[in-house]
Design a protein around this nucleic acid. Structure first.
Length: 727
DNA sequence: AGCACGCCGACT
DNA sequence: GTCGGCGTGCTC
């Protein structure tokens, strides 16, 4: 080896895989890279896209050192974005490489979009004028360039006409810049009719945005109070100030209505970002966000990792929604990470919800977050009258699940030619099937949860892992024929009961099982909004943001469902879901009702919903959690142990708990606080670790994992509680 | 995360 | 005798 050979220039590159630190690559002579540059590097047998990182390129065996293949012609990831990625990786105890991977999920976007072939008018007229040619000439009078197909379409002629004119020298070939995904939003485009409360709220938010700097504001008001219109004014202020805006929505696939309303206010749609965006569109959006062409993005949680360079506002709509939680690879809550992103970028964050999460309410109460409350529904929209139906006093008929008062209310609603919604958060026909003779229960062979009968499909389906089998006629255990019995209701079974009561009503079941997928679902929801159904029976997807103008009765079939599952957030979740679903009624000023069937009419959740007194419910929840030492009052990490069987998961969790190092100010909370749950077909057990300082807590968790039993890739760490205390 | 290498069951 | 399951290990 020649001692005098110059040491090559190197760069630290974060590669999109679970690497604990950046890898070192040689920078070829003449290549310019800086922190944030997106580069192509060899990694094992393949080539991947990585990001040049700020860290010092550590010493590495020179034999291993390989050169960067190329630097992409692409705006570098901003310093803020790099800090954000590091912060997320650190906070969630994930390898930084995996966090970076989330920001690099648009493979072909790192090369500039190609320019489009276009035709520029030369001013020459064609030799012979025809009608078709005249129409084209009229359009190109201003001298701007067109695409061939665009011009043909606009002029109402075929491409052949354009080709002919081109041959005669009417055009010269040119290249047009790539077309923007969306037109820029115009903050001055549409006025909104805001009532004085809304106007005051909008003014406060706009002032916060204009002042700039980090802040978090909770925008709080009942369903129908016009929160969206209010935060639109904050968006307008940010756009006016030349900043980019991100609106996070829990489930964008069904939020068509949001895009429409945005367009009415801003004259253009926001760019969309979610997992089922076509790959080509995905790349264009990524690129145009990086280049600043796109000013407003409406997206799912992953939009947080788009390469904004001028981000000046994040709005998190329905901030309480569990869909903001990512629970694979990097475990994070997008609402919390939005707050962190705002802190790093020194800009405001708005959290909007009719039913805020308890932790956000607490942060607003303690003054850590500002709070802007909208006191009432706007315009003619009145709140529905809400009542519970005590199922002990009004039991359903034998074999049925609908109580007489609910059936009576539906009958009256039908008579008035208005719509009813029956809500039951359970898909299929019956959640449990058993044999009347030997007691055999049908269980999933893969994950041991009960199989749910789907009578329409003639199948037994596992709702955890998707396993499906044909429903047999004989019991597989004792062989007896025709003695299988369905236990409990699902939406299909409720539909059966409804049809028996109201054979002439137009009844529809809406759940994710609907044949025809999301597209069909969207169509059916629109049809319902137009009044093309009398009775809708739906799972939670009917609870989300749709507007049904003629819906005047909402019946909750089993309001207790979900209260008894041992989750520390069960009451809060049920309250949020029931508020949302009862909020579907009464948006048009017609007298409307919400009825909750329950065995526990005195349960705090029922009382809060019926009385509308959310305030006391929150106070009670907060006190309850304080007692249990649960979030947001302590800093917690969750260690998620998952295994194929319940017994295995429990045993792994016990082993991990035993491995917990002794520390005075750190506690491992046990099974009562973190029960087993089934996610993705795997039994999960969550150990909650409570401590006071982030680094301390994380060190503790790392030690525990290192000393614990080997459980083969099934241990995940989630630190999702109150990142504010760590900022 | 991919992807290759490496040892034990049912088949062209 | 081979094809193929996924268990461990590596990537600058």
């Amino acid at each position: 080896m020649n001692r005098d050979s110059p040491r090559p220039r190197t760069a630290a590159v974060l590669v999109p895989m679970p690497a604990e630190r950046p890898y070192t690559y040689a920078v070829p002579d003449g290549m310019q890279v800086e922190p944030g540059s997106i580069v192509q590097v060899p990694l094992g047998p393949r080539e991947v896209a990585g990001v040049v990182w700020d860290a010092d390129a550590g010493a590495v065996d020179p034999k291993k050192l390989r050169p960067i293949t190329r630097a992409f012609d692409c705006p570098p990831l901003s310093k803020d974005m790099r800090r954000f990625i590091d912060w997320v990786a650190d906070y969630t105890l994930s390898p930084p490489g995996l966090a970076a991977r989330m920001a690099l999920r648009a493979p072909a976007a790192f090369d500039p979009e190609p320019w489009i072939e276009g035709l520029k008018p030369t001013g020459n007229a064609p030799d012979r004028m025809t009608d078709a040619r005249r129409r084209v000439m009229e359009l190109i009078g201003d001298g701007f360039a067109w695409t061939r197909s665009g011009l043909a379409h606009a002029a109402g002629v075929t491409g052949a006409v354009i080709d002919g004119m081109r041959a005669q020298g009417c055009f010269e070939d040119t290249l047009l810049p790539p077309r923007p995904v969306v037109a820029p939003p115009d903050p001055a485009y549409g006025g909104q009719d805001l009532n004085p409360d809304q106007q005051a709220a909008a003014d406060r938010l706009a002032a916060t945005v204009k002042a700039g700097g980090y802040s978090v504001t909770l925008l709080d008001g009942v369903t129908g109070s016009g929160k969206t219109e209010v935060y639109f004014e904050a968006i307008a202020a940010a756009v006016e100030a030349g900043r980019q805006v991100l609106v996070l929505l829990p489930e964008i696939a069904l939020t068509h209505a949001f895009l429409e309303r945005f367009q009415q206010r801003f004259g253009a749609k926001p760019a969309e970002w979610h997992s089922d965006l076509a790959p080509r569109m995905r790349e264009r959006v990524w690129r145009q966000v990086a280049e600043g062409q796109i000013r407003v993005v409406a997206g799912a949680r992953s939009a947080l990792f788009l390469p904004f360079n001028e981000l000046g506002l994040i709005v998190v709509d329905e901030e309480h929604d569990p869909a903001f939680k990512q629970e694979d690879r990097v475990f994070y809550n997008a609402r919390d990470m939005a707050v962190v992103r705002g802190h790093i970028g020194a800009f405001p964050v708005i959290l909007s919800s009719a039913t805020p999460s308890v932790e956000t309410r607490v942060n607003a109460q303690t003054g850590r977050y500002a709070r802007v409350a909208l006191p009432s529904r706007y315009a003619e929209a009145a709140l529905p009258t809400l009542a519970s139906i005590d199922l002990r006093r009004h039991p359903p008929a034998r074999g049925g699940f609908l109580s007489p008062p609910l059936i009576e209310a539906m009958r009256r609603t039908l008579e008035k030619e208005e719509q009813s919604l029956l809500f039951l958060n359970r898909r299929g026909y019956a959640p449990l099937t058993l044999c009347r003779v030997c007691g055999h229960r049908f269980q999933c062979p893969d994950c041991s949860s009960w199989l749910v009968e789907h009578r329409f499909r003639g199948q037994l389906v596992c709702h955890q892992c998707g396993h499906a089998e044909k429903k047999p006629e004989a019991c597989p255990e004792c062989g007896t024929l025709d003695h299988l019995v369905a236990c409990g209701p699902g939406v299909e079974r409720i539909a059966e009961e409804v049809v028996a009561h109201f054979p002439d009503a137009r009844t529809i079941v809406l759940s994710s099982d609907l044949v025809g997928g999301v597209r069909r679902l969207r169509l059916e929801l629109e049809a319902v909004a137009k009044g093309e159904a009398d009775i809708v029976i739906g799972t939670q997807l009917v609870a989300k943001g749709h507007n049904f103008p003629n819906m005047t009765l909402v019946g909750v079939v089993d309001a207790d469902l979900g209260l008894a599952n041992g989750d520390p957030r069960a009451a809060e979740r049920t309250f949020q879901l029931l508020s949302q679903v009862t909020g579907r009624a009464g948006r048009t000023g017609k007298k409307s009702r919400g009825l909750l069937q329950t065995y526990q009419p005195d349960h705090p959740v029922m009382r809060a919903i019926v009385s509308g007194d959310a305030e006391s419910f929150y106070e009670r929840e907060i006190a309850e959690r304080e007692r249990a030492g649960l979030p947001p009052f302590g800093r917690l990490a969750g260690i998620i142990v998952s295994a194929a069987t319940r017994a295995e998961a429990e045993s792994h969790a016990r082993g991990l708990r035993r491995a917990a190092p002794a520390a005075n100010d750190i506690h491992v909370l046990g099974p009562a606080e973190a029960p087993l749950s089934l996610v993705g077909g795997r039994h999960r057990f969550r150990l909650l670790v409570q401590g006071e300082r982030k680094s301390h807590l994380q060190g503790f968790v790392r030690e525990m994992l290192a000393a614990g039993p080997k459980v083969r890739g099934s241990v995940r760490v989630q630190v999702d509680i109150d990142p504010q205390s760590f900022l």
